[in-house]
Amino acid sequence: MLIFALLGCTATELSQSWRIDRLRVLGVAAEPAEPRPGDRVTFTSLVVSPTVEVATTVWFACLTGGDDFGCVVDEALLATLDPSGELSSDDLEALYAAGFIGAEPYLPPVWNVPADALDTLSAEERPEGLTALINVTAIPEGADLEADELELAYKRVPVSEATTPNHNPVIASMSVDDVVVEAGTVVSLDRGQPYTLTVTLADDAAETYTFVNGDGGEESREEEPYLAWYAEAGEFDQTTDLWPNFEAIHYPPEDASEAPTQIWAVVRDRRGGMAWTSLSVRYR
């Protein structure tokens, strides 16, 4: 494959992950990021869609997971969440039995971690704990619930009795050419002019934590978060940044309209913690 790339045997251009041109789920954050048994966990999501309106975002949580891709949810059960239809108490009961925890914007997702979640683990295993799988399904307006019309995503949430549980990273600011952009500000960018975008994390956002290794010994480690850039238009010199260099060059598009568009930056701490920010820009 590499040889082909070197010889320039490229394929027809495929859409790029960083370019937002369809309904996407870019981020899901749990709070707390690493709950203990009995904790109440709330969720937020970054769902973007430049082309269609999102009717609802449905959430399920399964402590042990149904398979690698999260809870197994019957499609017919999902259909009961049609906002235009009636939701019977039986349907609701079946939904909760399947792990249903919310449907935005009507029912914010909340998951109460069972108090006995770790009872099957030994005392040595509990600091590492288990993983819960959170399924998120974004349903556009007018969609008939065919899988190819939905955006399906899943996220893992560790449940443990860790002495240094994980926290979501905190983004302190985003700047354009070293100028910090205040929230709600629309930044004007000139076509043909590169701009340096920088994301700064709050102090101590890269946490130091204790890890119990395979030999039972404790190790102190520091998080190594990474950042992914997304945009509706333009280009980046690179779309992934590694800690601590959260900086990319953005090239405005040559032919974009002057309507405001968005640039997003999502930070993941590799332990399940997540945070994001966005930048409204107008190209001129």
Binding site: C9, A11, T12, L14, S15, S17, D148
Partner: peptide
Amino acid sequence: PEFELYNYDYTEKSYIQGLP
């Protein structure tokens, strides 16, 4: 076509072509 390639979410497919 020598190899098959999908885009990031597997909704598009293309090929890496052999030598021109």
